[in-house]
């Protein structure tokens, strides 16, 4: 195999990448299309970007989505960490296996069902207690928390299972009460997992269309909902521009995360070198 690479493998690779990236590439290309008609190339232009930035709808939807994502990520990280901690660190209790299984149910539940059931819950609640008066930011946030919390719990759970229990025991042994141990040892060591969970919850929320559509009300349109409703009225190039902005933002985020991880890895290597001297 050395030297001469298999043509078959290279072909597979090319097809794979083409399949993944040609649609995205086309989308970016057409966002710079001057023509108003989608399939007709009318020359290079940035006019659709100007349109997007001038559109109040887009700004409102983006801000709403960010607001919901921020609240969702923060609350879901808190709740998910608590659930993960309890699932791993607590002694066996009745129904622990059932609970462990149930926490991951939202991951496999079809979104339509999650959305529908939450909508029913909110309607019932409204009839009984009068709350929530009208559906909007609050209901979308609550709905997002219910499913993204499960993801956080699972990330925390896997980090805890792999962590060294004797660290917490050592702190207890040195005179720290259990609550103190949580803040001095457990949580600082969980921090990377919590950050990962927060980021995941954030993107899950930014991404979601189905559940948000079920539980939103008039006047609360998230960014995915806006894009979807505009496309339904006919493809317009300004949506391409909006999508390209989103792609670039995500790409920068991914590159940044990769760079931070690389730096951490290099620092760790350096530390090991220092230790062996």
């Amino acid at each position: 195999m050395k030297g001469k690479r298999s043509t078959f493998l290279i072909t597979c690779l090319c097809f794979g990448f083409a399949f993944l990236y040609i649609p995205i590439f086309l989308l970016i290309l057409y966002s710079f299309n001057y023509s108003k008609l989608l399939p007709v190339w009318g020359g290079f232009s940035t006019r659709w970007y100007v349109t997007v930035f001038q559109s109040e709808d887009v700004w409102d939807a983006t801000l709403l989505s960010l607001k919901i994502a921020l609240m969702n990520a923060t609350v879901a990280t808190l709740l998910g960490t608590m659930a993960g901690l309890m699932l791993v660190r607590f002694a066996r209790f009745r129904g622990k296996t059932l609970f462990t299984g149930m926490i991951s149910a939202p991951l496999v539940m079809p979104e339509v069902i999650t959305g529908l059931s939450l909508l029913l819950l909110f309607i019932t609640l409204q009839q009984i207690t009068g709350w929530p008066g009208n559906r909007g930011v609050t209901t979308i946030t609550i709905a997002h928390i219910t499913f993204s919390m499960a993801y956080v719990a699972i990330i925390i759970q896997s980090r805890l299972i792999n962590s060294d229990l004797s660290l917490e025991e050592a702190a207890l042994d040195l005179g720290a009460k259990p609550f103190r141990v949580l803040f001095d040892i457990t949580l600082p060591l969980l921090a990377p997992g919590m950050v990962a969970g927060w980021l995941l919850a954030f993107t899950l929320s930014l991404d979601d269309l189905v559940i948000a559509s079920f539980v939103s009300g008039p006047g609360s349109t998230t960014l995915p909902m806006l894009i979807y409703s505009r496309v339904r009225l006919g493809l317009k190039p300004d949506i391409n521009a909006l999508a390209t902005i989103l792609i670039v933002t995500v790409a920068i985020g991914v590159l940044l995360a990769g760079w931070i991880l690389l730096r951490q890895h290099q620092r760790k290597l350096k530390a090991e070198q220092l230790a062996s001297q």
Partner: peptide
């Protein structure tokens, strides 16, 4: 502790 359990 056997693993030393130093707080990393």
């Amino acid at each position: 502790f056997q693993s030393y359990a130093l707080f990393p």
